[in-house]
Amino acid sequence: MRQPDIEIYLKDTDVDHKAITAWLGDTLGACSPWVQKGQSWKCSAGGTPVTWVPNAVGKWNSLYLESDSTPWEDDLACARAAHAALAVEVRCAPGGWVEEDGEENADRWLRVSADGEEEITWRT
């Protein structure tokens, strides 16, 4: 089932802002100039609203794509694509999470790295 939006986390020491812009441009379409709003940066990539939050969780940057019209059906598909294109460690939720799912499931994450894919506990 297609998720209504996509959010992945990329390891800060392994990713560079220019590489993200190039990847989004190649994948979604040309990126508008980034505009800073508080701690976050926003742009539009091929018409998809994008939010980049540096160090959103410790040394992890959040990439949020506010659309259900991306090439990826879910966060994991996007995480796989980001890892393949950028050679960075990426984390994502194992599916959509809502408040009703309870706190015990909030710490379940998927890790995509050079070591493969695995479910981890990540206390954010």
Results as ranks from 00 to 15, higher is better:
37 K>M: 13
64 Y>A: 01
108 R>W: 08
109 W>T: 03
54 P>L: 01
30 A>H: 09
55 N>E: 13
58 G>T: 04
33 P>K: 15
47 G>L: 00
50 V>C: 04
12 D>Y: 07
35 V>Y: 10
88 V>Y: 08
56 A>I: 00
97 W>D: 03
69 S>M: 10
104 E>Y: 14
68 D>N: 14
46 G>Y: 07
51 T>N: 11
91 R>V: 05
81 A>V: 12
9 Y>G: 00
94 P>F: 01
19 A>N: 13
45 A>N: 02
102 G>N: 04
102 G>L: 14
44 S>N: 13
34 W>G: 07
111 R>P: 00
17 H>Q: 10
109 W>Q: 09
2 R>G: 00
41 W>V: 04
58 G>A: 08
38 G>M: 08
15 V>T: 11
73 E>A: 08
104 E>S: 15
79 A>C: 01
81 A>S: 14
76 L>Q: 06
7 E>I: 04
102 G>E: 11
35 V>L: 13
30 A>C: 09
50 V>M: 02
25 G>P: 00
107 D>I: 09
24 L>R: 10
19 A>H: 14
86 L>N: 11
119 E>D: 07
54 P>K: 01
16 D>Q: 13
30 A>T: 15
34 W>S: 10
109 W>A: 11
23 W>H: 13
48 T>Y: 00
10 L>S: 04
79 A>Q: 05
122 W>Y: 14
116 G>L: 10
54 P>M: 01
94 P>R: 01
46 G>F: 07
92 C>I: 02
115 D>M: 08
44 S>L: 10
64 Y>P: 04
71 P>C: 03
43 C>T: 12
106 A>Y: 10
9 Y>N: 01
48 T>A: 12
96 G>H: 00
118 E>G: 12
120 I>Q: 07
114 A>T: 10
73 E>Y: 02
4 P>W: 00
53 V>F: 03
82 A>Q: 13
73 E>I: 06
14 D>S: 09
77 A>Y: 01
66 E>N: 11
5 D>L: 11
124 T>N: 04
61 N>Y: 03
114 A>M: 07
42 K>Q: 13
12 D>K: 08
123 R>E: 03
93 A>H: 07
124 T>Y: 09
90 V>Q: 01
21 T>V: 14
59 K>P: 05
74 D>M: 06
37 K>P: 00
116 G>M: 09
114 A>I: 03
111 R>A: 06
95 G>C: 10
91 R>P: 00
55 N>F: 08
70 T>E: 03
16 D>H: 12
47 G>A: 06
120 I>S: 06
118 E>H: 04
26 D>V: 07
23 W>S: 06
112 V>T: 09
55 N>K: 11
62 S>T: 09
30 A>N: 08
58 G>M: 06
49 P>I: 05
67 S>D: 09
92 C>E: 03
26 D>P: 02
39 Q>Y: 10
13 T>N: 07
109 W>C: 13
61 N>S: 15
48 T>C: 12
114 A>S: 15
19 A>F: 06
116 G>W: 15
114 A>H: 10
118 E>A: 14
60 W>L: 05
25 G>E: 07
41 W>N: 03
105 N>L: 15
17 H>S: 12
35 V>C: 14
43 C>R: 04
1 M>V: 04
91 R>T: 11
98 V>Q: 09
115 D>C: 05
103 E>G: 06
